[in-house]
């Protein structure tokens, strides 16, 4: 169970605000301190482990840069919920072990709300309400249960 505060964003949170291009040369720990700074200057400073990012449509639109998902994970974000995801961001997040769940009811959540997410069961709880969301597809759960794509590949290579 992931439990923390909700950070609420609108539609079209793109990879350039998640991971600005001119910081991409820097090590992840430094690049992550600039995550979302263009629209939420306090985010990187104030986000706490287990907090949940809640977005609107096309979350993560833009570049294939994995640092967009990695920066959120580095800062301790427990899960990303959005009404829809850009496909590369969605795949990157799951490959890195950052749960990403389609959450059509994102507008029911306000910035700063306490929120709980169970990515395996597909349950979101907030403000005394429980929301059912589509669980992560079965073929991906195999990889996620291994801990992400890298541990999954290790296991696969060990078997070969």
């Amino acid at each position: 169970m992931i439990s923390g505060r909700a950070w609420k964003f609108g539609d079209g949170i793109d990879t350039d605000v998640l991971a600005p291009g001119h910081y991409m040369k820097l090590p992840l720990e430094e690049a992550a301190t600039h995550c979302l700074e263009a629209i939420a200057p306090n985010f990187a400073k104030e986000v706490r482990p287990g907090d949940v990012v809640v977005g609107g449509a096309s979350f993560g639109i833009g570049s294939s840069r994995e640092q967009a998902a990695q920066a959120l994970k580095q800062l301790g974000v427990g899960a990303v919920l959005a009404t829809s995801f850009a496909r590369i961001f969605y795949r990157n997040a799951l490959n890195l072990g950052l749960p990403a769940l389609f959450f059509p009811q994102a507008n029911e959540i306000r910035d700063g709300d306490a929120i709980e997410v169970d990515p395996v069961a597909g349950i979101v709880r907030s403000n005394g309400r429980e929301f059912r969301v589509e669980p992560i597809p079965a073929h991906l759960m195999v990889m996620i249960e291994d801990g992400g794509l890298m541990p999954h590949l290790k296991k696969k290579l060990a078997r070969a």
């Binding site: 294939s64 840069r65 998902a69 795949r91 990157n92 490959n95 794509l149 890298m150 590949l153």
Partner: peptide, 13 residues
């Protein structure tokens, strides 16, 4: 397009 971890997977498999 894909991210770097998935591209690593492609390089291996």
């Amino acid at each position: 397009g894909f991210g770097a971890t998935e591209m690593t997977g492609v390089m291996v498999t």
